[in-house]
Design a protein around this nucleic acid. Structure first.
Lengths: 245, 245
DNA sequence: GCCGATTTGTCCGTATGTATC
DNA sequence: CGATACATACGGACAAATCGG
């Protein structure tokens, strides 16, 4: 959707890097060159470069230039960088996705739930359990809590499709920030019941709190992944050698 | 030691948010107010806010204001956001750290190592195995590969202290970007030998490629964590609702 | 080693657009 | 509708790091 100029430059450069128009370790054109190429201001070029830096695509070097440090390979990963729904990542990795709703209830947050999920005591919530399969293989068990106030009209039917689709397209909610914590936990009886764990006795667990564009937390989810199909990627930058932004 | 103005504002606001000068869900002062408070340009304020947004501290809302969405975390987490050495995170979490060097050798990369680590075949490398303990409890097993060309003069003595200290303070190398992948893997014989795993049969594994400020990859590390002491935090933003920068 | 050209880093002021109230 | 607040974009200035002659 974004028609911003910096976003166009960002996508254009990203595509050129991915398709190896610039080789690994090669310098990109200087900022001033890009300014004339895209006929825009230097700030706008720099903003596009800032995002490529955050993505781990390039590395700016003071007084020298901007180097491409993108390596094309990388296996299919389930979770990368930003926020992505199960369905979206399945499509991106070329898998067929299937979701089975195991449980769909409503409940009111008590103190225990407040402490766990971050929803205030007394909040009206949906609580959903879902089993996610890729290529017919059950791999992920999701426990979702949604704030009814923000997301009315949720149904098991919607839950079996993409809830994020429903939020963004039907309700017009903008998903913005997600805080995630990743841990490894012992398998539960529910895990064992639905997922073929072979001899693994633990699961990769992502818990996330998600906020809409009003800064309201509307979701708490615990996503339990079969270990051998779990992969999480990340690009970190050291605080704080001068960078863009 | 950044003395940049935006960094000062960033730290100042961050401190105020953490100490709850602004309550959770409260609006921060408007950009224009901050401009006069810090007597700087609006761009500079916005840059500080952009970093707080990336940290998951605040959420900007078009036409409304900037909301504090920081919730203090009570649990000590081992890895958060940026790049951090073992020693640094131990200090941050108020733990005593100890490192035992299990193996210190030099080797030349063959094809197998190239495929695994990203170092070109023929590269001269250090290969180090280290056992890391917190509060006397062995928790992490590190396998490090360092590019000799970039990091000469590494010794077991340095490896038992902080290699990152050596890089940054003695060699003057600036660590910049790190690409990390997180997986869950079965325990190995080495894991079992050195770490008390109780009945866990898997480990949390972080593999990372680290680049210096010339965009040269100088490190490949596999860091194997005891599951019950492992925790990884992250803030993601949905691509791409208008944001700062 | 010095100097000037190039390149990235920081900061400023301003203008205009869009969303909210 | 006007006022406020954030979003995008421009152009300019100077600092700091690098490189070549």
């Amino acid at each position: 959707m974004p028609k911003a100029k910096y976003d166009h430059i960002y996508r254009d450069l990203k595509e050129k890097i991915e398709s190896e128009v610039y080789a690994y370790q090669e310098m990109l054109p200087s900022e001033n060159t890009l300014v004339t190429e895209y006929s825009c201001s230097r700030n706008t070029v720099r903003r596009a470069l800032a995002e490529l830096t955050a993505d781990g695509y390039v590395q700016p070097m003071h007084g020298k230039g901007v180097r491409n440090i993108f390596q094309p390979v990388e296996q299919t990963s389930f979770t990368v960088g930003g926020i992505e729904s199960f369905k979206e990542s399945a499509i991106r990795n070329n898998r067929t996705a299937f979701t089975k709703v195991l449980l769909f209830t409503e409940l009111t947050a008590d103190e225990k739930i407040e402490k766990k999920t971050g929803f205030k005591k007394g909040s009206e919530l949906y609580y959903i359990q879902r089993l996610r399969s890729l290529n017919g293989k059950p791999l992920i068990l999701d426990h979702n809590y949604f704030l009814k106030e923000v997301i009315p009209g949720l149904t098991p039917g919607i839950a079996s499709q993409s809830i994020y689709d429903y939020l963004e397209n039907d309700l017009g909610i903008t998903i913005t920030t997600s805080k995630r914590t990743l841990t490894v936990e012992r398998v539960t009886q529910i895990d064992e019941k639905y997922i073929d764990l072979q001899d693994y006795n633990c699961m990769a667990v992502i818990t996330s709190q998600t906020f809409d564009d009003n800064g309201i937390q509307f979701e708490y989810t615990q996503s339990r992944h079969r270990p051998d199909y779990f992969r999480f990627q990340d690009v970190a930058t050291r605080r704080r050698p001068p960078q863009y932004l």
